[in-house]
């Protein structure tokens, strides 16, 4: 419990920073929709002029931006990237922060099993990811209410929130595993970032293809396609895959960490 409390305290400042970013992204984005609607701009007409790869890059490939839900889907796309990146950083920090700061000799010479110490750190990170995702759900609903939109997007918000939560947890456990496997602390962070960039690029590739098929498996960012979520469907098979991969990767990471040589970064 003492480790969880300390981890939460240490991560409070970055959490506030990320929260502020998410808040600005959501509220500014939603306000933009208000402005676009008031000026009578047809974003679809503009976006039709762009190549599909560009639209995929900015998350507009499958979204009808004339509707609030479609416009929100674009914001949710960036929010998903935001929560995934935050989760990656938490995963890396949970495993490697002590080595990078050279405080590992203090903590890991205390009478606690390594598994318990890492589990406590991961537990604290999961609490923060969950809170951050909850805010990702609360902010758009609050923005829609504050800006007086008539269209009800609560179903879409919940579905995009659930998708982002599942995907961010997967990125978190991937980051944890890569950090455990890395010899140097920074190496884990670099590899986790590379995996994210790869997943992002594969997501763009998937969006440009008519039928991406198995390629979709390589990009957690596209496990839950915008078109499916907008039609009210959260793929149960991809949800199960996400949970399975998260649990398996996390369990493997904890097991490997128990036999890892702890040295300074």
């Amino acid at each position: 419990m003492n480790i969880i409390r300390r981890e939460l305290k240490t991560n409070l400042k970055p959490f506030a920073f990320w929260t502020a970013g998410l808040f600005i992204l959501t509220f500014v984005g939603m306000t933009k929709y208000l402005g676009v609607g008031a000026e009578g701009v047809d974003l679809n007409a503009i976006s039709d002029r762009f190549p599909r790869v560009i639209l995929a890059f900015i998350g507009m490939a499958d979204a009808d931006t004339r509707t609030l839900s479609g416009f929100y889907a674009v914001i949710a796309y960036f929010a998903a990237i935001c929560v995934s990146l935050y989760s990656l950083s938490l995963g890396f920090n949970a495993v490697s922060r002590e080595a990078a700061d050279k405080t590992y000799e203090f903590l890991f010479t205390k009478p606690r099993k390594r598994r318990d110490i890492l589990s406590a750190k991961l537990g604290a990170a999961v609490i923060l990811i969950t809170l951050f995702n909850l805010l990702n759900c609360v902010f758009p609903l609050a923005a829609a209410s504050a800006l007086g939109f008539r269209e009800d997007i609560s179903r879409e918000v919940l579905l995009f929130y659930a998708a982002a939560y599942l995907v961010s947890m997967l990125f978190f456990s991937i980051s944890v595993l890569l950090s455990v496997l890395a010899r140097e602390a920074e190496q884990g962070a670099r590899r986790a970032n590379l995996v994210f960039v790869f997943a992002f690029v594969m997501g763009v590739v998937c969006d440009t293809l008519e039928n991406p098929g198995a390629l979709r498996l390589l990009s957690p960012l596209r496990y839950f396609a915008t078109s499916e979520l907008l039609s009210g469907r959260l793929s149960p098979s991809y949800a199960a895959l996400c949970i399975l991969l998260t649990v398996a990767t996390g369990a493997l990471a904890i097991r490997l960490f128990e036999r890892k040589d702890l040295t300074a970064a």
Partner: peptide, 11 residues
């Protein structure tokens, strides 16, 4: 066991 490392790093 009480341990004092050669270089001390704390939070």
């Amino acid at each position: 066991v009480g341990y004092l490392p050669s270089e001390v790093f704390y939070y």
